[in-house]
Write a protein that binds this DNA or RNA. Sequence first.
DNA 1: CGTGTGACCGGCG
DNA 2: ACGCCGGCCACAC
Length: 127
Amino acid sequence: MPTKKILKKNIIKKEAPKKFSFFDDVYDVVRQIPKGKATSYGAIANYLGTKLSARMVGWAMNAAHNAKPKVPAQRVVNRNGMLTGKHHFSTPTKMEELLKKDGVVVKKDKIVNFKEIFWDPAIELSL
DNA sequence: CGTGTGACCGGCG
DNA sequence: ACGCCGGCCACAC
């Protein structure tokens, strides 16, 4: 017996309402993050409608290195405000450097007043 | 076409 | 408070 129930999903898209892929959509949101602000993967996922799958956002960021123009992935952190993806940057300290340059206070790989500078696309972009 | 994986999140023990 | 585990979607091989 199979380990889990494998649900088949309709992977066949009959139409392409969205010209941009999921990746591009994520990039577009991230680029709209104001300077000095930051958001979480979950917030973006929620805005995209896949809140239960915040991993997708993180993975999208994985390809962000190849995206143009460059995506300010440093403004995207996990819900704890921790710079979890700093290891994926050019240098482990690059993310923190960029955030500090934006005026964000980072301490021990974590945004101090993350709650205050939190920027929710689901709200901001909804206005 | 099947399998694995991923910078997460939330719930439960 | 902490640690573990399941889930969810998209993409690469």
